[in-house]
Every structure is written in C-alpha cells, then in structure tokens.
C-alpha cells in the first residue's frame, strides 16, 4: 500500500529502496517504499526484525542514504547530501535512540552530552539551555557534572530526550526508545515523549517492534514486513480493522493480559469440571 502524498508532509520517502551487500549477497532492506508523514502527527512505524524499520529510521535521520529513491525532510531533499550540508536537517530533526546506555558516551559528563547538539550548531549559551531542558524532562539540573553510569535506565533515557529537545527540533524520531527499559518505567518515558511532542507540536516518528507502544502514543501507523509497507493508516483503523493478513497475525501475536487471564480462567473451569 502506498500512503497518500499530502501537501503538508514534513517527511516524505518516494520510491525508496535500500540494498546492502554482505559477503557477496544482496539484502534488500527496503523495497520501493513510499511514505509521507504529515506535519504535527504522531507516526508509528512498526515491524519485526528484518522488516526494514531501522533502515527507514536511518534514512529519515540522514544517517544513511537510499540506493534508489528520494528522501525529503522539512522541504529539503536530503538524498545523498554530504554531512556538511545536513545542517538544516540536524537543526530540525533529533533522535532518541534505543539503548539508553549505548547512546550516551560513558566518558562524557551529562552536561557535555546534552550540550552536544547545541555546541555543534553554535548555540549562544549551551549551559543555560542544558539546565532548562533537564528540568523539562524532570531531572535535577545539578546532574550536569555526573556520568551516565550513575543513572538508571529510565533516567538515562530522560537525559537522551533532553539532548534531543535541546536544539528545539520540529521533528522527534524515537527509535525503539522504550524497548530496552524496564516495564516499570516504560509507560512513564512513553508519556514523557508523547507530552513533549504534544506541548511543542512536534512531529513524532515512533519506530518500534512493539505494537502496544505505538498504539499508546501514535495516531498514524505504517506496518512494515520484509522491506515493504504492508498497511498504513490511522491507528484506530489499522488496529481495529486490519486489512492485511500479516497485520492480523502481528496483532494476534501480541500477548494480552486480559486475554491470557481469560484462557487461564477457562483452564481452571475445565479442571474443575473434570474433577
């Protein structure tokens, strides 16, 4: 399915393919994908491993370039642009990565980590801005002199979010941003991302393998399978009335507590009847 191209699309992928070569074999990570993400939306990209969702995220974030097709972000065609000409993209788009330990340089103090995009983009007063954004993610601004390993996973992800919003981007990409977190903090971080995106009217792109996570924060969704978009549309529609077999399979496979408890109840009733 090809998403409709709307005029106010902030991110647009047109006929994009990405092929990797590994040990003489060709791997088609994305095949002829077109996608357009409306400004101000919360867009979920879901898929299992090998679906091409990470490749898509890297193309959108200007970390990789398509083999075929064009990627446009915020009106600029970023396809194949060298690093030094990606300035506008770096100002308008920021990413929160999956692993809250891995995405923070262990040898850097928190203050320097959060200031990195500001310093790279020549901000006038990084220190003040760092304290401001740390406050916005409910962290004590006094932590600027500490190191990443002194924080829990959830706190580290807050630091990561602070870094992403520091340069005041228009687009926030969350790449499996809560997948590595403990269940107890997952909901909090998810809500924090959603709240920040809503309060600043950001466009949120949420890449995840977890369908329930996407359902909680997104209004639009695209389902990827083996490098293609199999289904896309409003979250309510795709989740409640999936059109494609694969989407149905995916939704059915998500463990659901109430459903499992229903089954447990049935098992118990069975046992009592047999007694």
């Amino acid at each position: 399915m090809i998403a409709e191209v709307t005029s106010d699309a902030v991110i647009e992928l047109r006929d994009v393919s990405r092929t990797f070569h590994s040990r003489g074999r060709e791997v088609q990570a994305l095949q002829d994908v077109s996608l357009s993400i409306p400004r101000g939306s919360a867009y979920g990209i879901v898929g299992e491993s090998g679906s091409g969702k990470s490749t898509m995220m890297r193309l959108i974030a200007g970390l990789d370039t398509p083999t075929v097709g064009r990627v446009t972000v915020n009106g600029t065609d970023i396809t194949g642009l060298p690093e030094r000409r990606l300035g506008p993209l770096r100002r308008s788009l920021q990413v929160v990565f999956q692993d809250p330990m891995g995405s923070l340089d262990p040898r850097m103090r928190i203050g320097r980590i959060v200031a990195e995009p500001l310093v790279a983009q020549g901000h006038a007063d990084p220190a003040a801005r760092v304290r401001e954004v740390l406050g916005q993610v409910d962290l004590d601004p006094e932590i600027v002199n500490r190191y990443p390993h002194q924080f829990s996973g959830g706190q580290r992800q807050r630091i990561s979010i602070a870094r992403a919003i520091a340069p005041d981007p228009e687009i926030l990409v969350a790449d499996e941003a809560v997948s590595a977190l403990d269940v107890t903090v997952r909901a909090q971080i998810l809500d924090l991302i959603a709240d920040i995106a809503a309060a600043r009217s950001l466009t949120l792109v949420f890449v995840s393998h977890d369908l329930s996570v996407v359902r909680r924060v997104c209004d639009q969704v695209a389902v990827l399978q083996r490098g293609r978009i199999v289904e896309s549309g409003p979250v309510a529609e795709v989740y409640d009335r999936p059109q494609q077999d694969y989407t149905r399979q995916l939704l059915a496979a998500v463990p659901d507590l109430q459903q499992s408890l229903g089954l447990a109840r049935a098992r118990q009733d069975d046992r009592e009847r047999n007694r």
Binding site: R58, G62, E83, R90, Q94, G102, S103, M108
Partner: peptide, 24 residues
C-alpha cells in the same frame, strides 16, 4: 555504539566525532 549516530544527529562532523568520542 549508539552515541556515534547520536553525535551525528546532533550535527557533529567526523573530525569532532573522532576527537570527542572515539579518541577518549
């Protein structure tokens, strides 16, 4: 490590990445 793409997204150029992230 993920902090390398994070630095790229932040707008760091390769030389700055080598100096501030890789070397230390």
């Amino acid at each position: 490590q993920d902090y390398i793409p994070a630095a790229r997204v932040a707008g760091r150029r390769p030389f700055a990445i080598a100096w501030t992230h890789v070397l230390p």
